[in-house]
Write a protein that binds this DNA or RNA. Structure first.
Length: 458
RNA sequence: GGCGCCAUGGCCAAGUGGUAAGGCAGAGCUCUGCAAAAGCUCCACCGCCGGUUCGAAUCCGACUGGCGCCUCCA
């Protein structure tokens, strides 16, 4: 079977060409004007899993994710903080990438920045003007929404409905209130670049078209992002890209993840209901976050709650224990190859079906049970464990013990556990339990096994 | 107002025509100095009403409740 992804535009499952094939993947990135919240982890994890699964299935992936490092919010924020747009953007871009690394996200092949694509942006504006799809007005350049009849095809709207929406701010510089800015003439104090229309800066949507065109070509395979980008961002991207190249489709597949909610509402900076990504990373670790996100299919909205996260944390621990538990001493016999193969089949079947990570996760939990059963039955556990770690790796799970920076504590904890083991051997239960309870109070969990005692940070 | 989505056990979440995956929590048993972990067993008829069908959580219609986009947002 082949991988099928539901395309937002056609609402049909679309397959990619069979491998070997290089998948051209463009995922809309962030505007780095503030710290990241867990909502940002959703597309990062979803598209990371897409990438890992494609590679698992034999594809190579050219993955480009942009930083929109020039825009109104950045300008306002920089002025408020008395810093430069560039310094601000660099700070939050770096911070974002550091958080992604902690989440075990594979780095994109390339991370272009809007401010480094100005020549391409200008070239596209000129091309659109030449083709009659855009016009200069004042120091601005606007895309003419009515220049092609299919505007609105991605988000399922038509221009006249949009007009009746009445939240549009008509500007005298625009021929039509729905036309959007490709290039904005500069205002005093703003960063600006030279252009045929005078000094200015890119509008919001054009940078993505430019970067996709520059780094992936005129037609890409998968264009992804959060569902909130469907309109107007991706709608406008399609319009200007296809108008510019004259080669539809701009993207073979449009793939959008549902937004994370906090309580009943979506999490967003404007609502002020944000939970920082790094804080969650600190308390729950990367695997729990991934389990939490991948527990539902990417097009279903997930709701962030403490309970859901701690449930995911418990699940991550279960997987990790199974992935590394030791076989009984003197274990003989192994789990049949066919049994292992069946898990792979189920996993692939789930993932092929529009990245059904929820089902794929169920396979991993079943595989964990297989490991534990094999161990209890006195079998070798290496084979199912290798499979578990392999397939878990496709979902980007690290199986790492807690990533607490408490490594310095490890030797001391080991020493205490050694002492406790001796106390237990001497049947000094009260003292042994004091050690265990004391460690527990400090956040160190102990598990006694046949092969000795293991511990972890809870 | 326009476009669209969702409603499954205590919580989360798969499942789109044939009698409900998985996780968390809970109960019992086994194992164990105790505890934890692990294994086994148990725990739902799928928002409401009507319809189609031999048969529906799954299709159609109405209703109720919730959410998203239409404005910066991943």
């Amino acid at each position: 079977m082949s991988i099928r992804i539901l395309d937002t535009l056609s609402n049909e499952p679309i397959s990619l060409p069979e491998p070997p094939y290089e998948v051209k993947l463009y995922v809309c990135g962030i505007t780095p004007y503030a710290g990241s919240h867990i909502g940002h982890a959703v597309p990062a994890v979803v598209f990371d899993v897409l990438r890992r699964y494609l590679e698992f299935r034999g594809y190579t992936v050219r993955h480009v994710t942009n930083f929109t490092d020039i825009d109104d919010k950045l300008i306002d924020r920089a002025q408020a903080l008395g810093t430069t747009v560039k310094a601000l953007a660099d700070q939050f871009s770096d911070q974002y990438l550091a958080s992604l690394a902690r989440l075990n996200i594979l780095p994109a092949t390339y991370y272009p920045r809007a401010t480094e694509e100005i020549p391409a942006i200008i070239r596209i504006c000129e091309g659109l003007i030449a083709g009659g799809h855009a016009y200069a007005s004042g120091g601005d350049v606007y895309y003419r929404v009515r220049s092609k009849p299919d505007y609105g095809k991605l988000s399922g709207r038509n221009i006249d409905d949009l007009l009746s929406g009445a939240r549009i701010d008509p500007t005298e510089l625009k021929d039509d209130p729905l036309d959007f800015a490709l290039w904005k003439g500069t205002k005093p104090g703003e960063p600006a670049w030279e252009s045929p229309w005078g000094p200015g800066r890119p509008g919001w949507h054009i940078e993505c078209s430019a970067m996709a065109l520059e780094h992936l070509g005129e037609q890409i395979d998968i264009h992804g992002g959060g569902a909130d980008l469907i309109f107007p961002h991706h709608e406008n991207e399609i319009a200007q890209s296809e108008a510019f190249t004259g080669k539809p489709p701009f993207a073979r597949i449009w793939m959008h993840n549902a937004l994370l909610r906090l309580g009943a509402e979506k999490m967003s900076k404007s609502l002020g209901n944000i939970v920082g990504l790094d804080e969650v990373l600190d308390t729950a670790g990367p695997d729990a976050i991934r389990l939490f996100i991948l527990g539902s299919q990417y097009r279903s909205p997930v709701t962030y709650t403490e309970e859901a996260l701690s449930a995911a944390k418990a699940g991550a621990e279960r997987l990790r224990d199974a992935a590394f538990v030791a076989a009984k001493p003197g274990a003989t016999g192994t789990v049949p190859t066919e049994t292992i193969a069946a898990f792979y089949e189920r996993f692939e079947e789930a993932m092929d079906d529009d990245l059904n990570t929820s089902r794929a996760l169920a396979v991993l939990f079943d595989l964990s049970r297989e490991v534990n059963r094999a161990r209890d039955a006195g079998l070798e556990v290496a084979a199912p464990q290798v499979a578990l770690r392999h397939l878990g790796g496709v979902l980007g799970l690290t199986f790492a013990l807690s990533e607490d920076g408490s490594k310095e504590a490890a030797p001391f904890i080991d020493l205490l556990i050694e002492l406790r083991t001796e106390l237990r051997a001497a049947k000094q239960w009260a003292l042994a339990d004091r050690v265990r309870d004391g460690l527990a109070a400090l956040g160190v969990e102990i598990k006694d096994g046949k092969e000795g005692t293991i511990w972890s940070f809870s």
